[in-house]
Design a protein around this nucleic acid. Structure first.
Length: 120
DNA sequence: ATGCTGACTATGT
DNA sequence: TACATAGCCAGCA
């Protein structure tokens, strides 16, 4: 059975992660902040790690502040995460990093100063 | 209770 | 840009 933590911060973290749209990514710190857990980025990673295999939480959309997939203790999962993201259309550069400015999730779509990004 | 670890981040070098 | 440190906090031995 699930850990008793499901009623606490973990549940809030999961709720935030569920809001990340397909093809976008959010950072651990960003998720923490939106979940009302400022500066507790580590807990976000912890909460996701505790996630059951079958889950409706798109854990793969959470990456670190550098826009890279954080290396796991158990190798292989990081590669899976990247594969899942690429399948959603997320692009990685040669260094294995995502351009957060372009593909990072922007809750509430705040319009940035003025005009939309020019195309290509 | 204490100490270490971890899917992190901000800051200084 | 990359590496080292300090700060964070929950879980576990």
């Amino acid at each position: 059975m699930p850990s008793p933590l499901e009623n606490g911060s973990h549940a809030r973290i999961h709720a935030v992660v569920r809001r990340i749209p397909r093809g976008r990514v959010a950072t651990y710190g960003q998720v923490a902040l939106l979940a009302g857990l400022a500066r507790q980025a580590r807990l976000v990673g912890y909460a996701l790690h505790a996630l059951p295999g079958r889950s409706d939480v798109p854990w793969q959309r959470v990456v670190n502040a550098r826009g890279a997939v954080s290396p796991r203790r158990e190798p292989g999962w990081d590669a899976l995460q990247r594969a899942l993201l690429e399948r959603e259309g997320v692009r990685f550069d040669a260094r294995g990093r995502i351009d957060l400015v372009r593909q990072g999730w922007r809750p509430r779509s705040p319009r940035r100063g003025g005009r939309a990004r020019r195309r290509a």
